[in-house]
Nucleic acid binder design. Structure first.
Lengths: 238, 238
DNA sequence: CCGCTAAATGAATGCCGTTCATTTATTAGA
DNA sequence: TCTAATAAATGAACGGCATTCATTTAGCGG
């Protein structure tokens, strides 16, 4: 629980320990037993996971690869997390802190929601494998996520939303945001009907004419749905 | 490559082939080599996967378990699907055919969308592990899915939607539907803030007052968002 | 000083998707 | 009608995965 941020500053401890034979590429082993300075902590694990994700994607995020990244044996990770799910949780909470909630309290409700929703979608579009985790995640375990909900709730209440509709309104928006995050990852030709085009004339024509609309398709659809939700939900204010 | 559709009609061939000694629990071995009557086909694999999913959930859907369910060696499956992803695809396309599109052509656009969206959400709420697959799935590979899009597109066009907005409107609705399907699976106490309740007074109060609203929380939020989308998108008709 | 606990290693486990060589049956073509 | 190609099954094997366990070592509290 300490989360001592200091030990994450420099190189991992092993780098100072090794290098006795110059020219060794840094693959030197650490002996068994507890090291004098702790090598791992949750912040370091989070940082290592993020680096691994950005370099190799979520397929590359394995406990073995994460251990290697941190220059540690895989089993050492289990002194700090109970399972891989906990690593994903750390990453999720870290990312949620990046979502822009600054509009609440400074801008109109409509504009604050716009900023928040676009930011939220953009952050998780790069991290869709986390979405199934988030969906089942009790907020208790994710303090930053809880903080985000607090700010957003306060904004909704200040805008005149009746208390009992705040959570369901946020959930509706969030559902749209998560679904739209997936949409960003879809391949461009996802709607190419190929050989069955003749049997689906209406859909095929609609897809064709969509091609002329400026902007990324996922952005166009998100804009459309978000504005519909904002005006529809906004009408329910007291 | 044949994909002879006829062999998909009846029960999987295995049911007719086995059980030579009645009372035998079906653990009988088959010799190596091609059997006279084909044991596997895509319809049988789909049915086996669905049975497995309903009994053991998606964690229980492994290639080994599926093979056992179909009384076949695991490697035999790879004569019919290239990878496990293909099995999920078969399941997805099967489920999409269960989505109710009957409102399009018979009811108002609003009512047709309502029926379609609720049905779509309910079907996939039980199958959320498919959602990441659907998101990346080119429709070419899923004929039933393509058929659904055709019916829905036709309904939107008939309701007066400009052609170039049909696809993005459907995508926006679908994003909301997929996100909401996840929401159904969330545990009841997902918003219990626990020990941090004092630092999140607005959110905690909102969660408390939500408890008084009748209906399942996921349903309330879905209703709210869906009606907002219907009125917001409906305003864009020509 | 001594024992407990924390944090590391390294070996081992069981499951998973997938591949490959092999066997056998069907089918197409000369 | 023989024959070669192909299709569909078995069974053994593979590498990778998350996770567990015994062991070693270091620091801390009584």
């Amino acid at each position: 629980m300490l989360e001592t941020t200091n030990e994450r500053a420099g190189m991992p401890a092993v780098s100072a320990t090794q290098g006795r034979s110059p020219g060794n590429a840094g693959t030197q082993r650490r002996k068994a037993g507890r090291p004098s300075a702790a090598v791992l902590d949750k912040a370091g694990i989070t940082a290592g996971a993020l680096k691994l994700i950005s370099r190799k994607g979520y397929d590359g995020l394995t406990m073995a690869a994460l251990a290697k990244q941190l220059e540690v044996a895989p089993s050492a990770l289990y002194n700090h997390v109970a399972a891989k799910r906990d690593v994903l949780l750390l990453v999720e909470d870290h990312l949620t802190a990046l979502v822009d909630v600054s509009g609440f309290g400074t801008a109109s409700w409509e504009q604050a929601v716009r900023t928040w929703a676009w930011s939220y979608r953009n952050v998780f579009a790069e991290h869709t494998p986390l979405i199934p985790v988030i969906a089942v995640l009790p907020v208790t375990d994710a303090p930053q996520t809880l903080a985000m909900y607090e700010t957003v709730s306060k904004g909704f209440l200040a805008a005149g939303f009746p208390q009992e509709r705040v959570v369901s309104s946020i959930v509706a928006l969030e559902s749209f945001i998560f679904g739209s995050a997936y949409d960003v990852t879809a391949p461009e030709d996802i709607f190419e009907s190929g050989s069955m085009a003749e049997s689906t004339p209406n859909f095929t024509a609609a897809v064709r004419s969509s091609a002329g609309v400026p902007g990324r398709p996922a952005d166009v659809a998100f804009e459309l749905g978000l504005e519909a939700l904002i005006s529809g939900l906004g009408a329910l204010r007291g």
